[in-house]
Design a protein around this nucleic acid. Sequence first.
DNA 1: TCTGGGGTCCTAGGACCC
DNA 2: TCTGGGGTCCTAGGACCC
Length: 391
Amino acid sequence: MALEKVYFHVDLDAFFASVEQKVHPEWKGKPVIVGGLPGDRRAVVSTASYEARAYGVHSAMPLVTAVKLCPNGIYTRGNMRLYQETSEQVMEIFTRYSPEVLQMSVDEAFLDMTGTERLLGKPVDVAKKLKAEVFEKTGLTVSVGVAGTMYVSKIASGYKKPDGLTFVPHGDEEKFMLSLPLEKLWGAGDKTLSHIRSAGLKTMADIYEKSESLLQVMFGSSMGTFLYEAVRGNKGMIFGEEAKNHSLSSETTCDFDLTDIFAIETVLMELCENVIFRMHRQNCRSRTVVIKIRYGDFTTVSARETSEWSVNTVDDLFERAKRIFEKKYESGRGIRLLGVGLSNVESKEEMTQGSLFDFGEEKKTKVEEAVFKLNDKHSEIIVHKARTLLK
DNA sequence: TCTGGGGTCCTAGGACCC
DNA sequence: TCTGGGGTCCTAGGACCC
């Protein structure tokens, strides 16, 4: 007999803001907004504490709007390194409850709890214990969803927040999904929701009543199947699926739109440094370089080029990025955002034919790797290309 | 309100080969 | 001379998520 599946989805409540309140106890109980300082142009809210949410402040909101809604809030740009460390601490706790932890982002993870009942106890009791342990060791609260499918556990963790615990018993998945408003569908954003509504479907039940093939005709084959499964609690999502090829990118929004070519190239160089640094640290490689341009009016374009050879050095990436940029850029238009990335990134592990480049390139790569390792170890020593210091 | 930065996945079309 | 169908690789853009 197959074991009944049990999944937890665990979500840290207002994560960045909560870490800030822990580090600054005098901020507890006050509206804390992470993302930028008042006066920062073009910043957005990354996380708002629950006290700040009471003012209507939420993630992705322009910071200037947040300042208007909550002028007496405590504003901070945040400290990613600290959040990363705290996240690792929490994830480590999770691994003691399940050998199968699927981390989705810095602040959430799925745990496959199937078959752990005999050892650990009833799922709901285990979830309570997990919540207590995270709070005791880190001072942070989490919201947990417990269900027989990953999809429903994810929706359930958001059902009651903060510090929530929601259990959906086996067999109740459809009932649970059908009790929720359409906006709770995870994987359907604004565009899809308005598409669904304009097709005359107002509730989960309206979708539920349609056949899969009809939904496919209405919304495309992939989205149709997704909707069909989602309102049923999505039995299709599989634990631990790994993407083989990933991507790696760095982008930046300028305080003021750029037209000056030297300024633009300086930004490109900085982005290239960042990307190569992380490429070396992750020990991976790629042959495809992508650049992204967002103009002042927010129209966004991208262009890419795949070459026969992997990217090696900052200079190498910079030359490729610059060439692609020059082809794509509509000269004279103000640039709001610039991005540089690598796609089809693969692990370097199994790479054997190492001498695709000549010795000069090889030496340069070695030097850069050494510099990046130095940067990694001693964050106070920053070794930069001369160009990016000319600012 | 005036819209960050890091990603993933999907679609649709073109080039090329057999 | 006109032209099928499948497979693979690549590109650009869009939707979505945290």
